[in-house]
């Protein structure tokens, strides 16, 4: 199984590269790669009971902060809004529709693993990249520590080890890259979730599940799968009982974030023609004004 899966990913990687080369715009996202076969996770906040097991599993798998397991039972953390940081790649927060303040629901946040990630487009050395399997992967040995990824991320997810004078790393959810691509397992948070609020699968399958749930329980969900279209789509997607405007997830356009900067960059450097044309033009000006100068000097010498 694991071997088959690995081969599948090799094929998928080759396929997506081919797609990336033959760019074609399919919808309003400006997206050039089909991500429906990528892995993703559906977070159903109507089912989430806010137990924080996902935070515990993530800490044991990745950050290893040394916090005792009991500390993750503490629900008083919901009094204050928290964000992921270098010691916690995922955190759970509590929200409510202001019209129904007693109907509280809890929501886990982590890296969304965008289909067209702004962080990867921003990174000048390719330290962040969208893997064909779905995860946005960070290769720390490439990183120069410019933190442009943090400026770029529309979800404000990458965090930084500012405390380290040497070898500081960008820290964020890895989507348990090795677990899902090499060990054939689910991400640690999904595996531990006691109420199946987290569903792991291909993006296409998850979208089917999400829309099926909305259709079968319209009283339970707002008709919106967050991450289906936002920022060109994300690997992690959300269902919620109320409008997402009440949560910390930002309101985003459907277009992929890097579209504008990449259009400008590729326009300027189209086959290097614009810079070369400018070079040629300046050369011409230099040549012609020099001749003029020589001639005017000659004539003044004759006078």
């Amino acid at each position: 199984m694991a071997i088959n899966r690995r081969n599948f990913f090799k094929l998928a990687a080759a396929g997506s590269t081919a797609l990336a080369v033959g760019k074609a715009h399919a919808d309003d996202s400006g997206l050039t790669v089909d991500c429906s076969d990528n892995y993703g996770v559906l977070v159903d906040t109507a089912v989430c009971i806010g137990c924080r097991r996902c935070e515990l599993a993530c800490d044991q798998e990745h950050t290893k902060s040394g916090r005792p397991p009991e500390s993750f039972d503490d629900k008083s953390v919901y009094e204050k809004h928290r964000r992921p940081n270098k010691d916690a790649f995922t955190v759970v927060n509590e929200f409510a529709d202001p019209a129904k303040p007693d109907d509280k629901y809890t929501m886990k946040v982590q890296c969304m693993h965008c289909n067209d990630p702004a962080c990867a487009s921003a990174c000048l050395v390719g330290a962040l990249r969208k893997d064909a399997a779905g995860p946005v992967v960070y290769e720390e040995w490439r990183c120069i520590g410019c933190r442009y990824c943090m400026v770029a991320c529309p979800f404000q997810i990458p965090t930084y080890e500012y405390d380290k004078a040497l070898e500081p790393r960008v820290r964020k959810c890895t989507f348990c890259y090795e677990r899902i691509t090499e060990e054939g397992q689910m991400p640690a948070c999904v595996a531990i979730c006691p109420n199946e609020a987290l569903t792991f699968g291909t993006r296409q399958r998850l979208l089917e599940v999400a829309h099926y749930r909305i259709k079968s329980h319209p009283e339970r969900y707002v008709d919106h799968v967050y991450g289906e279209k936002e920022a060109g789509g994300t690997s992690w997607m959300y269902l919620a009982p109320a409008e997402f405007a009440h949560t910390e997830l930002p309101r985003l356009d459907h277009s992929a974030i890097p579209t504008l900067t990449e259009t400008i960059q590729h326009g300027i450097f189209k086959s290097f023609l614009p810079p070369l044309a400018l070079y040629g033009l300046l050369g011409l000006i230099m040549h012609s004004t020099r001749e003029k100068k020589d001639r005017s000097e000659e004539s003044s010498n004759h006078d």
Binding site: C123, L124, V125, G126, I144, G145, R147, Q265, F269
Partner: peptide
Amino acid sequence: GRYYNVWHPMLPSMWQGDS
């Protein structure tokens, strides 16, 4: 953060033309 890697963009294997 990793000023000692400032030369990385010179390596073709690191080039990232979208950036």
